[in-house]
Design a protein around this nucleic acid. Sequence first.
DNA 1: AATAAATAGTACATTTATATAATAAATGTA
DNA 2: TACATTTATTATATAAATGTACTATTTATT
Lengths: 167, 167
Amino acid sequence: MGPPMTDFASTEQRLSVTCRRYPDFPRRPGILVRLITHIYKALHDEANALLKPYGLNHPEYNLLMMLYGTTSGTMSPSELADVAGEKSANITRLTNELSEKGLISRSASADDRRKVELSLTPQGLAAIESLLPDICGLLARQGRHLTISEQVQLEKLLKKFLSGLAD
Amino acid sequence: MGPPMTDFASTEQRLSVTCRRYPDFPRRPGILVRLITHIYKALHDEANALLKPYGLNHPEYNLLMMLYGTTSGTMSPSELADVAGEKSANITRLTNELSEKGLISRSASADDRRKVELSLTPQGLAAIESLLPDICGLLARQGRHLTISEQVQLEKLLKKFLSGLAD
DNA sequence: AATAAATAGTACATTTATATAATAAATGTA
DNA sequence: TACATTTATTATATAAATGTACTATTTATT
């Protein structure tokens, strides 16, 4: 079954072969993209596994946390789609689910009546606070191999990398 | 519609609120996870957009490139699943599609008859080489905001971060 | 040799995500 | 006022991903 993908040696090997066959291939950006992909998938899987007992999946949890992070306590669907990186059609489906579970509520915006205000219900808040201890444990564990200064440095570099996307 | 998500300021703002409401929240790992998520989605979307004219999507392209990177030219479905970060059930579907398009072929392994050997067909190789110029341009563009030494440093930190996942 | 346990691959059902288009209401502006 | 634009939802249809269970084969154990 090959080496566990957390080692990554085989990926480097394959990129070497690729560059030999096609010398123009940008090796370093290529490896960064593959690392990001593997990390994202691992994060996604771990979060889903942790959240399953709470009846939530990773995207649903994310939406709840976006709302939890606002000062006003509300966001419109399109804002939410933007900050969570979801497509708008997907936001409708996800917010429907969260709404059916009683975790968020919809109401018309006062100043722009085209807009819908999404906000956490008391049950939504309670759900978040019941799962946050687990999430905090997971996040701490996921970052444990990096020192604080490495985390700071990584954050800085990722922001710079992100700034090169989608302009 | 809110700030473009390539800036990320609003994410930091939300994490500040979150930490104020729930002081145990691990801020730095949290921000790393959100950065990775946004970057992955942007990479995924850009790759899909580029590949669409070639009749491929990002996962399919990835599988082709994994095979392109082998010296033997073949891989079993489970190896491929491992290195591409796909679930095994998904590999069956994806390799079916690639096989129907004539880009890869299946054959029985000589030494272990449970195994299937997947390999690029001449058409698969031609497909890769026809899209690689575009891919190389994309990768180079995506990494252009980072210097070589920043790319090296980022790669190192991402590997360390990955090593903390799924043990 | 016989049996048990592990591995590889797939089929099927379900869930999750996307793309597209149509609708409707509210807003801004010529 | 008339008209284009924005916001959000809905409705399909389709695609992508996952979980579970099942078959065949190999490997290990007795």
